[in-house]
Design a protein around this nucleic acid. Structure first.
Lengths: 243, 243
DNA sequence: TCGGATAGGCGCCCA
DNA sequence: TGGGCGCTTATCCGA
């Protein structure tokens, strides 16, 4: 029995059972679908998940270099002297041509949990709604995540008598953020038939271009960063770990 | 020798050697850094790459649910009855509390290759520059990827006597794309002191809102998709594979 | 290093 | 199903 046959048996077994599998191998990867790509020979880790997502990871970096979306088919075939993993899904294909297997493993994996994330833009708007003084002493919030024809507005309210649109960014704001705020302000003016609507950008900082655009439009800026509820615990943890 | 000791030895060996390693395990994950998150118990695949990138994958979906950037430290410790993988990097931390190991593997992985991708927005602008008739019979391109004070313009040229800014999108264009084009056109008017500057959006299709915005601004639309150099080969491949 | 923009973006929510 | 948009976005590229 060849090493290909061993691998083939283990691979088919895992796929039939709906297991998740991992292959580390020397390979090259050809993809064609929405775009197309070729990745020359090198060592990679390939994962096929139980939902048939396929991802190819190089030995550095955070991002998968190639992938196939969930629901595809994956077949291991021998072609002359090579082993090819052929992945197909909705008009896209990806071929992994394998020249050497470093290791292979599979196991049924079950996971019903989902990530609980905080410190997001949504958390910022919640924070502002709960504590409007963060925008100004006189800011009275009316709505959160208000859906309009041009998108949805993080927080809207009145400051004094002026209708005010607040756009939150968890990171430094860029020109796109100002464009977005302007789009909302213009839309609200038109929809509400109000002449004066104020725009406010709430973010930790701004890029120079964003700052200039904001000033040109006469919009406001509030220095604010997303809340991190574990911050105190984190600090303690870091100290315990000697940071 | 406990199973923890076995794992610890294999883990430390892999880390010392600069190998890449894979652990499939039941675990929960706590992260705190730029944001913070908690992932309750479930089965995951954890990879630590040779550059010390750590990624945590659930058994479905394309994206890593948690990760740490390259260059951090990773330690496997026993805490009472549990095994904890502690990852630290530049003020961020991630703790994986492991309750069961499904499998563990490691191997030195080497990969000097990088992805060759085509069918991008850049490929579209190259295509237009090489074949200006795609925009119109009279379009004369002047520059590609021109860096202006407001950003860079994919293609700029003259159509008849009118300065024309072309923005390419490889996918269906959305309102953000139109905003971007408008920003460029307005800037060029100001910088060049020209009254009439034409904007053209080159993309396969537009969202309804984008279409309306484009019409309101009097900009043009050219139906175009990014070139895929392997397209013929791909089609043949798909036929061979029975699609 | 910073800024600006793309991405085979993905994933989520909501009409 | 598609539009709109945030993201621990990452990654690339130029100043």
């Amino acid at each position: 029995m060849s090493s290909f046959d061993d691998l083939k048996i283990a691979f088919d077994y895992a796929m039939e059972r709906g297991e998740s599998l991992v292959v580390a191998c020397r390979c090259q990867v050809l993809y064609s679908g929405r775009a197309e790509s070729f990745l020359p020979d090198g060592d990679r880790i390939i994962i096929i998940k139980s939902d048939k997502t396929l991802i190819v990871h190089q030995p550095s970096g955070h991002t998968a270099v190639n992938y196939m979306k969930p629901g595809g088919t994956h077949d291991l075939i021998r072609s002359e002297h090579k082993v090819i993993l052929k992945s197909r899904n909705e008009g896209e294909f990806l071929d992994v041509t394998i020249s050497r297997i470093h290791f292979f493993n599979s196991h049924p994996l079950e996971d019903g949990a989902s990530l609980q994330l905080s410190g997001t833009e949504k958390d910022m708007s919640d924070m502002i709604f709960a504590n409007p003084k963060l925008i100004s002493p006189y800011f009275k919030p009316l709505s959160r995540e208000e859906h309009t024809k041009v998108g949805f507005i993080d927080v809207m309210g009145y400051e004094g008598g002026v209708l005010t649109v607040v756009e939150c960014k968890r990171n430094a704001a860029d020109p796109k953020a100002v464009d977005q705020l302007r789009r909302y302000v213009e839309d609200i003016k038109k929809v509400k038939g109000v002449e004066k609507v104020q725009g406010v950008l709430a973010c930790p900082s701004m890029s120079p271009k964003a700052e200039r655009m904001l000033a040109d439009l006469g919009f406001g800026f509030v220095s604010l960063r997303p809340p991190k509820y574990m911050e105190k615990k984190e600090k303690a943890q870091m100290r315990l770990d000697g940071f």
